[in-house]
């Protein structure tokens, strides 16, 4: 399974919008925010996405985390900005894509959303989402990791698969290469499975705004 070529999202799903060029902050700029609880690995997920964009897609990217003093359980967020040109202010100001894996993190950090922002929230853990005409996707990300793959730690790899499938901000291959470079060899196959489950789950998402 490990040697299967991961297809590029463009060729697989031509109906997905091209992310670059529709960014809020100017030409070729795309802003993402991942939010969750301390310990879910979303800050690492942000690093991996930035690495995929910089090292495997030749883009500029910044990853800028914010967390509190609590080691686990507090709300955390990470902003990832991908652009064709250098990025100065490293925080998202008009978010194109927002991920939430915890309700309190959604409540605190679902700000600065672009009018046409796409939201991905955990279907079980983030029940209350304000529907401001945004495209809202609900996937059981943590459940897939915890129940199906038997390890909650894989939540961020599942989430990254879904984010990549929904945004096309980096190719599947670039994202996987960046994940692979970060995980220990013994966890490689299970992370691959988690990433692919995220991709598969997101392929089933409706592409129209949820009313």
């Amino acid at each position: 399974m490990g040697d299967t070529k991961i297809p590029n999202p463009k060729s697989q799903n031509p109906n997905l919008p091209s992310p670059l060029g529709r960014g809020a902050g100017g030409e070729g700029r795309y802003e993402l925010r991942f939010s969750g609880e301390g310990g879910q690995g979303i800050i690492l997920g942000g690093s991996i996405l930035a690495e995929a964009a910089i090292l495997h897609q030749g883009k500029y990217a910044v990853q800028s985390p914010q967390y509190g003093s609590r080691v686990r359980g507090g709300p955390t967020k990470v902003d990832v900005i991908v652009s064709d040109s250098p990025i100065l202010y490293p925080r998202a100001t008009k978010i194109d894509f927002f991920l939430a894996l915890a309700q309190m993190s959604y409540n605190q950090y679902a700000t600065d959303l672009a009018d046409d922002a796409v939201l991905l929230v955990d279907a079980n853990l983030v029940p209350h989402v304000i529907e401001n005409g945004h495209v809202i996707h609900r996937l059981p990300i943590v459940e897939i990791a915890k129940i199906e793959l038997d390890n909650e730690v894989l939540s961020n790899s599942v989430a990254l698969g879904a984010v990549v499938a929904l945004t096309g901000i980096v190719s599947h291959e670039a994202a996987w290469n960046a994940i692979e470079a970060r995980v220990p060899a013994k966890a490689r196959e299970i992370n691959r499975r988690a990433f692919e489950r995220g991709l598969e789950a997101a392929e089933l998402c409706p592409t129209k705004p949820v009313k």
Binding site: S47, S64, P90
Partner: peptide, 9 residues
């Protein structure tokens, strides 16, 4: 903290 914890190219 901003420069220390952020990553970039």
């Amino acid at each position: 903290e901003l420069l220390g914890h952020m990553s970039e190219r």
